[in-house]
Design a protein around this nucleic acid. Sequence first.
DNA 1: CGAAGAACGTGACTAAAGTCACCTTAATAG
DNA 2: CTATTAAGGTGACTTTAGTCACGTTCTTCG
Lengths: 230, 230
Amino acid sequence: MADDKVPIFRRAELFRDLDDAVLDVLAKHSIVKRLRRNEILFLAGEPAKGLYVIASGSVRAFRTSADGREQVIHVERAVTTIAEVPVFDDGNYPSTVAAEEPTTLYFLSKQQIVKTAYEYPQLALAAVKIMAARLRRCAELVETLSLREVGQRLASLLLDEARNRGTNTDQGTTIKLRLTHNQLAARIGTVREVVTRTLIRLQDQGLIEHAGKDILIPDMNAIAAYAESD
Amino acid sequence: MADDKVPIFRRAELFRDLDDAVLDVLAKHSIVKRLRRNEILFLAGEPAKGLYVIASGSVRAFRTSADGREQVIHVERAVTTIAEVPVFDDGNYPSTVAAEEPTTLYFLSKQQIVKTAYEYPQLALAAVKIMAARLRRCAELVETLSLREVGQRLASLLLDEARNRGTNTDQGTTIKLRLTHNQLAARIGTVREVVTRTLIRLQDQGLIEHAGKDILIPDMNAIAAYAESD
DNA sequence: CGAAGAACGTGACTAAAGTCACCTTAATAG
DNA sequence: CTATTAAGGTGACTTTAGTCACGTTCTTCG
């Protein structure tokens, strides 16, 4: 039964360099958890018991203001781990995590991970790499939130999506947004209405063409320039 | 000559658990660098050659917008390391770093550190801890920038300072600010004038009393409540 | 299919933040 | 000690973002 977990675990960057035998031990100790869309895995500030491997689906880590507005810190999709931070620094969960879609996870206890990290330095090294990458993205998020306006933040997000999962046509790059305006807002640090209006504005400026969830970026360079401009 | 470096290195969290012998090797390979106030150590995006130990003084890591506005990501003071991120994930420097005051640093090459990390897992483990802590603070920064207003952000900063280096009197907690309004602005993501006005507003609201760089917080709970309020 | 709920669009308004220009005060270097 | 320069203060204004209210259009599911 743990056998089918091992290949999944191996796809996680954190575990990539561990031997099958070690992964097998981890897998045997892991506990399955399934989440419905928007179901919460844990809350920011809760004492952390361990980390999770996202076997399928995706989750968002976010913070909430007192009046309920969300700011997404990062989104992670299968197969990765989440909540490494509190495992290694022994604190509470730093953000609330909820499923973006139906998601299956495997839970691994803090003790188990830390023990393994002492025995197999590859694990610690991999953890460092993952955190380094997170830190980079987090610093970028700080920069855009603080130094760029909503239009540019939205443009960056679209650009990102287009680069990752866009398809090139003769008209330019097209993407099918899977996010609602509300979700977009939570990622770029604003509210729904502003997203709606900003999309229209980007269209008026000729940077995008959108019909519902379908977005066409005629000129990737133009939108990149706009996103980065002063 | 490396002998005097070893006790300094040992005070850095990253190196705390290494043997003297190992530290001695690192120390022998390190290169001194001195910075004047506001002198730049490296720029965001530059290829990273290694990390630095802050032997004395302090530095800020920040990002700059096209029109020159700065957003401070974190501040580090002696004795800590900076630029671990690009050492472990092998990318460019993520932020620009400049000295906040006259500062002495020791440079250590990426190769040297990585090699040591492979031999001594304590180093990797320490790096994970440091990054985890950074990630926490960075997420917090994202939250405050996105979800809180300037008044609250400034209040949190003052509260932080007061908790760390405030002195309690019968009137409340007092702190001597060492930051100019410009520096405050760069940390909380706004501009000078807004800081000036916000300080006045906080005073009008009875949360602080300030005369130049001296700030009195009569009621720590009150300002904490304000900083966190919706 | 048709009703309910979610998502989207939009006008009108408020408020917060940022900009500009200029003045005053403090710090410090010759 | 005084001349520069850096820092702080302030009024008037613009811009951007956020709020509220409400209508419309999708989705989806009983």
